[in-house]
């Protein structure tokens, strides 16, 4: 039976890209548990919610990178930042978040440098802007984009699945949606 070597962060990242759930157990043991200890006292349900949000938003961004020496560290720091934002939203944190000093945190993996964190922050900001624009679309438009661009389904197939009149309508709608997304991102300061 295949088992991910949790001490090899590159192997963990590769297994996550390969959709092997064993790698998630490594993240749970190596990152989620220290994260829960850091955030104590925190309700386990809240900790899980914050961390699964990080997995959803941050880990796919990290997996696009080339070097995974600080993979755990980046996930960990992102999770702590997410927890701080979560506290801020609940009115428990400071109004403006000062940069977190991660150097005092003791974990059994290497923490990322400030440059890496800043780079990560920039990617997260772009992703957040894209997500905001995406959320402005209707459910049907969102599904249309995912089916066509991610699943690469044919226009005819999509027309049948989503109830469009024909393949041409799918093409025209998709064009409109992509233009709308791009305009939205330009408005947010991201000229792609």
């Amino acid at each position: 039976m295949y088992k991910t070597d949790c001490d090899d962060q590159e192997a963990v990242a590769a297994d996550l890209r390969a959709n092997r759930s064993e790698a998630l157990k490594c993240l749970m043991r190596k990152v989620f548990e220290p994260f829960c200890r850091y955030c104590r006292p925190i309700d386990m349900a809240d900790a899980e919610d914050i961390f699964s949000g990080v997995l959803e938003r941050i880990v796919p961004l990290l997996l696009k990178g080339d070097s995974f020496r600080n993979f755990y560290g980046l996930v960990y720091c992102s999770a702590i930042n997410a927890w701080r934002r979560w506290n801020q939203q609940r009115g428990k944190g400071p109004k403006t978040l000062p940069p977190e000093d991660f150097s005092r945190i003791v974990v059994d993996f290497e923490l990322p440098t400030m440059e890496m964190l800043e780079e990560q922050q920039a990617r997260e900001s772009l992703f957040a802007a894209q997500q905001e624009c995406f959320n402005q679309l209707t459910k049907q438009q969102q599904d249309l984009m995912l089916l066509r661009i991610v699943e690469k389904r044919s226009r005819e197939d999509i027309a049948q699945t989503l109830g469009y009149a024909n393949a041409n309508v799918v093409g025209v709608t998709l064009n409109q949606v992509l233009r709308r997304m791009r305009q939205c991102l330009i408005q947010k300061g991201y000229d792609l």
């Binding site: 796919p60 961004l61 997996l63 696009k64 995406f134 984009m145 995912l146 661009i149």
Partner: peptide, 10 residues
């Protein structure tokens, strides 16, 4: 945009 949608899906 495609990169974003892939990340979203992943």
């Amino acid at each position: 945009l495609a990169g974003f949608l892939h990340q979203l899906s992943e």
